[in-house]
Design a protein around this nucleic acid. Structure first.
Length: 951
DNA sequence: GGCCGAACGTA
DNA sequence: GTACGTTCGGCCC
């Protein structure tokens, strides 16, 4: 398996300055000061340990400053002119930094006449251009200009992206952190730096302008040039004078802080490849400088940090049975408990404006919308709550009262006025909006013309960290009430307590403002707290990659799919319903006749009693509920014995299912305003990372039977448009062939062979309908975590025969057996499985005492990496689809549905020819460049007037 | 009204 | 044998 390349560029010089000031003044046995060197060594150790982790390095280089002049001195002779000499006891440590780097056998770059920052920028650019991700290990603010920079795709290579890592604070620095620090996105950091200047490097900036003012100016005017140009028309005063007077210095400063990205690269990128670190030179260095604790770790029998990682000896082994280990370790910050009386209800424009002003400075704002219903496409806005910190929260009622014509509406800021004022905040690049399931809020506000961005979602962060993590008595969900209890040890007010339940329930807009404020503002407060607890765990627990690269970008994409909805043909559905109803009545008469009595056919209990007790059919099987089972397999069995009634019941069940779940429910689901059906996707619905769909579920629309297929024909395109369906063919088997490394299966996929026929040939030496069918069953059994009993049930053989088949399969495809064994070993040791893209799924019952429970977990654990990788791939395709279509000039293609391995689009008929290849390519290449699969991903595309016709 | 299990629709 | 959501009957309060 070839993972995405990830280059770490260590800003060595900057690091040792900080290490020097933060660590005690140690000396080695020879009396040389080595405090900073020790700090540096432990950092390299830790980075090397992260090799093979999802976010860890595959390549690494240390970049050092070589004291000299650079092009900046030609621009400005005072550049770095007043820099004090380094402390006396730091000077002898500089050469040791080089020694330490060599001891780790790591690349070390330093160039005369070029500053380290420029070398870093140039390497970062070169690496991202060839699709590598880059992490800059530094906390230098100049380098923050590079964060989030992604190379444009070119020549079929998707560009990589840049982030930073502050190893001292153990903090990842991504776009959100940069925005938090500077109030502007990374590409504008240079403009802020140019205004504020830098006394250490002697970048002049504009006198009297500090970080706050600089940030404010860039936020207000967009960039440096615009701010300088606008200066003459600004409010008169010191600031205005200085901006005009020092405009040239500001422009010069901009040149000084701008990084040079086209330096010559002294060593090719490939030379930075990180491999096992030879222990001998490292041991020699450690012992020479008396770093005994590190020496002990090296000698701990594991040879080198790289191997130490694989065996994980320095950390306690995380067992899945410990509930929410990460959270348990975390101590609660020093926060006051949520105080419901501390929240403010904003009812005047002045109050609202004051809050918006504070929120705009806050960088991170938790937000929650309250509505009249759960359906984001129908609900009316009742109010919005915001939180800026613990117990610093408010509620803005917007739609309270009004249902009782005679009662007085409470005082509120008028809805449109409030939204108009909130819009800049909610859309500001500089303010991160945090929500719990923020897709809901995005959709509610989108209906009011507000595009909420950028966003973070505590529910999805929790999912990326803790999917599947649960133990006895502890919920494993990601709902806010649960998260609050689990992480904050705080029980929130529940919706039921506020609005009641069932018939007595009242819409949120009818809740009195004091109670509404307590509930709504608490939700925002809790969301803010959860965010500050959970978000830092992402980099610590290698969740950043899956969150930032897969799930977070998907939020606005899925939100938009939900808003688009899909058209259904109401008349056609109604017609089917009538048709089904007639057949159902006829079947009922026949069934009652055959049974000699009327009863509730839909009651398995009554049906079982009649079939097996009264009519005396054989094959009855009572389950743990003491009730006969009457499922499909049993009834088919009865039918084979000649029980006519069994077939009638099966047909009755199919039709009643189709009528109640589909033809009737879908008509009811049509949104009266849009005339379309809007499902709701859950981004945390399946432990494996798949989406799930509810209200209505559009991921289980019938297709397998001819009669069910008619329901797909009811999903249609608007006039002049068509529906286009694109689905991955056999994606999970392809992934299994890759992940388990099965050459014959990989070859078969490469050649486009019939995979089940190929399996039949390998297994039985011959291909016919029977052997191919059996091979297909076995192939699926593998994906689901095989057991002899399960396979026997499907094949209709004995468990012994099934076992013989499994043995034969493993014999032909030994990679599969190795995959199963090694996957289970890893899950038992770490407690979780991982997809090719680093998504974790926890299995707390994998070491359970009960065999049934344990084996259940084992099957799920074998399946999760395969199903989850497939889910990651289609999610990546979805996130890239919009930009790819736009780039191709296809602005009228709308992505409507996702059904696990299928995407459904609506588009003008004339766009099909142009859109199909774009869609095909985005889907087929969705794993790249993070993962390069050994098998091609086949995509099948069809289009037509209806979903049924598109298949 | 609320909850559970059986059954069955999808990938 | 994996992963879901919905409907229904039956039973509880």
């Amino acid at each position: 398996m070839e993972s995405k390349q990830h280059l770490y560029l260590v800003d060595g010089s900057a690091y040792i300055f900080r290490a020097y000031h933060r660590l005690p003044p140690l000396t080695d046995p020879q009396g040389t000061p080595v405090g900073a060197v020790y700090g540096y060594t432990t950092m390299l150790w830790k980075l090397a340990e992260d090799l093979n982790k999802a976010d860890g390095p595959t390549h690494l280089a240390v970049i050092l400053d070589k004291a000299s002049t650079s092009f900046r001195n030609e621009l400005y002779d005072q550049y770095k002119a007043h820099r004090p000499p380094p402390p006396e006891d730091l000077v002898p440590q500089f050469p040791l930094i080089r020694d330490a780097t060599r001891a780790f056998s790591l690349a070390c770059i330093e160039e005369e006449g070029v500053e380290a920052d420029d070398i870093i920028a140039s390497y970062a650019r070169a690496a991202t251009r060839q699709g590598w991700d880059v992490t800059i290990v530094s906390s230098d603010k100049d380098l923050m200009q590079l964060v989030g920079k992604c190379a444009e795709p070119h020549d079929g290579v998707e560009g990589g992206c840049i982030d930073m890592l502050d190893t001292m604070k153990n903090q990842r620095i991504d776009v959100a952190e940069v925005i938090e620090k500077f109030g502007v996105p990374p590409e504008k950091v240079g403009d802020v730096l140019a205004l504020m200047g830098d006394s250490v490097d002697n970048v002049p900036g504009v006198f009297g302008v500090g970080p706050k003012t600089a940030s404010k100016l860039i936020q207000d005017y967009g960039d440096l040039d615009s701010a300088l140009a606008a200066a003459p028309s600004m409010k008169k005063g010191k600031l205005q004078e200085r901006l005009i007077e020092h405009a040239d210095l500001a422009r010069l400063s901009k040149e000084l802080v701008t990084l040079k990205e086209d330096c010559a690269l002294p060593v090719p990128l490939d030379d930075f490849k990180l491999t096992a670190i030879p222990p001998e030179p490292l041991a020699a260095f450690l012992s020479r400088h008396g770093f005994t604790s590190l020496l002990k770790r090296l000698d701990g029998g594991h040879g080198s940090p790289e191997r130490a990682t694989q065996l994980n000896p320095s950390k306690p082994v995380t067992m899945g049975v410990t509930p929410v280990e990460g959270a348990a370790r975390q101590s609660l910050p020093d926060w006051p408990a949520p105080d419901l009386d501390s929240y403010t209800c904003l009812t005047t424009v002045a109050q609202l404006d004051a809050w918006i002003a504070r929120a705009s400075d806050a960088r991170v704002v938790a937000i929650d919308t309250e509505t009249s219903a759960l359906d984001a496409m129908r609900a009316d806005l009742a109010g919005i709550s915001l939180a800026l910190g613990p117990n610093d929260a408010c509620y803005i009622p917007l739609g309270h009262g009004g249902s009782d014509m005679f009662a007085e509406r409470p005082t509120q800021v008028p809805l449109n006025e409030a939204l108009q004022r909130l819009k800049p905040l909610l859309e500001s690049d500089a303010v991160l909006k945090v929500g719990q399931n923020i897709k809901y809020d995005i959709n509610v506000l989108a209906r009011h013309g507000i595009t909420v961005a950028p966003v973070d979602d505590t529910m999805i962060i929790s999912f990326c960290l803790d999917a599947g993590r649960q133990a006895e008595g502890i919920g494993g969900g990601h709902g806010m009430d649960e998260l609050s209890e689990r992480h904050l040890n705080h029980k929130t007010l529940t919706f039921k307590e506020i609005c009641g339940t069932g018939k007595k329930a009242i819409p949120f807009g009818e809740v009195p403002l004091d109670r509404a404020t307590r509930y709504a503002a608490e939700d925002a407060d809790v969301t803010w707290r959860l965010h500050s607890l959970l978000r830092p765990r992402l980099p610590q627990e290698s969740g950043t990659r899956i969150y930032e690269r897969v799930d977070r970008p998907l939020i606005p994409v899925v939100a938009q799919m939900e808003r688009h909805g899909i058209k259904v043909d109401r008349e056609k559905l109604a017609g089917l319903s009538r048709q089904f109803a007639e057949t159902i009545s006829a079947l009922e008469c026949e069934i009652f006749g055959l049974c000699g009595q009327e009863f509730t056919i839909g009651s398995p209990k009554q049906l079982g009693d009649i079939l097996f007790d009264k009519m005396g059919y054989k094959g009855g099987r009572k389950g743990k509920s003491g009730q006969y089972s009457t499922d499909q397999a049993i009834l088919e069995n009865l039918a084979a014995q000649g029980a006519e009634v069994a077939n009638k019941v099966l047909e009755w069940r199919q039709l009643t299912k189709l009528r109640s779940t589909y033809t009737e429910a879908l008509q009811a689901a049509i949104n009266p305003t849009t005339g379309r059906v809007h499902t709701s996707y859950s981004l945390v619905g399946a432990q494996t990372g798949r989406l799930s769909s509810t209200d209505p579920n559009l991921q289980n629309i019938p297709i397998r039977t001819e009669i069910g297929r008619q329901i797909r024909d009811c999903f249609v395109a608007e006039p002049g448009n068509v529906l286009l369906s694109a689905d991955y063919s056999q994606i999970e088997l392809r992934l299994a062939a890759h992940m388990a490394d099965v050459p014959p299966l990989k070859q078969a996929f490469a050649k486009g062979e019939d995979i089940h026929a190929r399996t039949a040939m390998e297994m039985f030496g011959t291909v016919d309908r029977d052997t191919r069918g059996r091979a297909k069953t076995i192939n699926f059994a593998i994906l689901y975590g095989i057991s002899r009993w399960g396979l026997a049930g499907r094949l209709g053989t004995s468990a012994d025969e099934a076992q013989a088949m499994i043995d034969r399969y493993f014999d032909r495809f030994p990679g599969i057996q190795r995959y199963i064994v090694s996957t289970l070993e890893l899950v038992r040791e770490r407690g979780y499985s991982e997809t090719l893209f680093g998504r974790k799924t926890w299995f707390p019952r994998i070491n359970a005492k009960s065999q049934a429970e344990r084996q259940g977990s084992e099957r799920a654990a074998i399946n999760a990496p395969i199903q989850g990788t497939s889910a990651d791939i289609i999610k990546r395709a979805m996130a890239r689809m919009g930009p790819a279509l736009t780039a191709a000039g296809l602005n009228e293609v709308r992505m409507l549905l996702q059904v696990h391995d299928e995407l459904v689009f609506e588009l003008p008929e004339g766009d099909v020819a142009a859109a199909a290849p774009v869609i095909e390519r985005v889907m087929a290449e969705a794993a790249l460049p993070a993962v390069s699969l050994d098998v091609p991903l086949g995509v099948e595309i069809g289009s037509g007037q209806s979903w049924g016709a598109a298949h």
